[in-house]
Design a protein around this nucleic acid. Sequence first.
DNA 1: TCACTGGCCACCT
DNA 2: CAGGTGGCCAGTG
Length: 191
Amino acid sequence: MKSTSIHDKIIISTYKTDGLYFSVGISSLTHRIVGIALPHDGVSDSVAEISRLHQECEVSDEYIGIAKTISRIYKGEKINFELESLDLKVTGSKNIKSVVKTPFEREVLIQTAKIPSGDVRTYKYIAEKLGTRAYRAVGTALGKNPFPIVIPCHRVVKSNMKIGEYRGGSEMKKEILENEGVRIIRDRIIK
DNA sequence: TCACTGGCCACCT
DNA sequence: CAGGTGGCCAGTG
């Protein structure tokens, strides 16, 4: 069986601002985003975060504008991002590996995408939207979010309004939320 | 199959 | 308020 992913190539573009590097990976086949890196201090770490998940990658400036847009969201600008531009499909195939692994992860991401900038929801809220009590599984799914910043997993916090964990560290989570105008005192969201 | 492991939650000291 | 305990359930090997 032929895998279409054999001919797929991921283009990785990086935008630098304020000493931070933002990378985005885009499929040359589908033209959808397949990966976003959290900001890093160096360009190699930023590129590596995306490239280690894909076999064929090419570094290019082609999509630097998208990387820049992501950096602006990080800074707190309210920018509408089409969900259509993300590769959210889930394939069960062994040959063709999708970045989103299961329907559950996909639904968690879609619910999270609805949270407006400047606001937060809880892990429990997301779980209940999916009709389950798998609160922890929601956290696990968001921990694997291939599209951080654009799919705002940083806006999902604990039920007691404490910040909770983040792949880039809770300090980074706090920083993004504050950039969006969320008030935080002693690691707790103030409504 | 089955026994873990978790970006959690609620409840109890 | 901090820390501990049991519970929940999707993924993983």
